[in-house]
């Protein structure tokens, strides 16, 4: 499959994520959209690494391919940790203001 398919898919996912973050006020949805953007980038990383592996001329030793695949797992682990922190914040926010509308956060002003 040409790499452009992956790029288009990743771009589409990223744009959906951006649009979601910009338009939605529900903190959980916003959060999910952020994850969508993150994973779009992840997907692109995996795709590029795969393509680079294929593009290696025959006879020469492959230098890429699996590194980024493993790298992506690390990203997912870190993202999972980040999600837990983010969700904890949302839970605390809900306990305090009984709402998960992000515009409520402007109360931090002043």
């Amino acid at each position: 499959m040409p790499v452009s398919y992956y790029i288009i898919l990743a771009s589409a996912l990223f744009c959906i994520g951006v649009a979601g973050v910009l338009t939605r006020r529900n903190a959980i949805i916003v959060f999910m959209c952020i994850e969508l953007m993150l994973n779009a980038v992840n997907l692109l990383l995996v795709a590029f690494s795969k393509m680079q592996n294929i593009a290696t001329p025959p006879g020469s030793v492959s230098v890429g391919g699996s590194d980024a695949q493993i790298f992506v797992f690390f990203i997912m682990v870190v993202a999972a940790a980040e999600v837990s922190v983010g969700l904890a914040i949302i839970v605390m926010m809900y306990r305090n203001v009984h709402s998960i509308d992000i515009n409520f956060l402007n109360r931090l002003k002043n």
Partner: peptide, 12 residues
């Protein structure tokens, strides 16, 4: 303004 949405919009 304190509106997170605005910040993000400006950032984007």
């Amino acid at each position: 303004s304190g509106l997170v949405g605005n910040y993000i919009l400006i950032m984007v």
